[in-house]
């Protein structure tokens, strides 16, 4: 464990808490892409299958349980409890355009051809594009609530911090995982446009508005 990965995990945790807070306080999931939340739930479900077979540490197991449970609660809130506030008309990204190519790629490019490893690889690839429905929805609505932009900033920062973690682990531990690094870079690059808008607008107290 290193400081970059720890701050990254805390940033990820913060993002999820911010989203749940937003939905609970405003009793609404307006502006949130349910499709991205489904993809995140799928990412955790396929990545943490070793939750009961490989014990790494109490921290690792606790965080896995937290991510799996909160992602399911988020999907539940969006599609059941606050369904009336779900903006389906703007959340129209076709999930099959992401899941099918990612699934195929996981089959072709992985570290070893075992079910657990292929599912882990699928999860890594899927996470790198899971935010696309959310970004697509924001480009269609042309704006985002401030709390939603904080959620996205924390979510995008987590994987950017993981890149620093991989640099650290490469130089100090000789650890290197090409699949995780490439996917992590793609994931972070997808946020660049949003990061620019967040830093130039939201941090100056303005509302986040995208050039629709």
């Amino acid at each position: 464990m290193n400081i970059f990965r720890l701050i990254g995990d805390m940033s990820h945790l913060l993002a999820i808490v911010l989203l749940l807070l937003k939905m609970w306080k405003t009793r609404s999931c307006a502006g949130i892409s349910g499709k991205s939340q489904i993809l995140f739930a799928l990412v955790f479900a396929t990545r943490y299958l070793d939750l009961f077979t490989a014990f790494i540490s109490a921290y690792n197991s606790t965080m896995k349980l937290f991510f799996i449970s909160t992602s399911l609660v988020t999907v539940y809130l969006m599609y059941f409890k606050f369904r009336a506030t779900y903006d389906a008309n703007h959340d129209t990204f076709r999930l099959e355009f992401l899941v099918v190519p990612v699934g195929g790629l996981a089959f072709l490019v992985n570290h070893n051809f075992s079910p657990l490893e292929i599912l882990w690889t699928f999860s890594i690839y899927l996470e790198s594009v899971a935010i696309l429905p959310q970004l697509f929805m924001m480009s269609k609505t042309g704006e985002a609530e401030t709390i939603t932009s904080h959620y996205l900033f924390a979510l995008g920062s987590y994987r950017a911090l993981y890149i620093l973690n991989w640099v650290f682990r490469y130089y100090f531990e000789g650890f290197f995982d090409l699949i995780a690094v490439v996917a992590g870079c793609v994931q972070t690059i997808l946020y660049c446009d949003f990061f620019y808008l967040y830093i130039t607008k939201v941090l100056k107290g303005k509302k986040l508005s995208l050039p629709a």
Partner: peptide
């Protein structure tokens, strides 16, 4: 075991 150990990231 090494494989499982390696997957120590979230």
């Amino acid at each position: 075991y090494l494989q499982a150990q390696e997957k120590d990231e979230l």
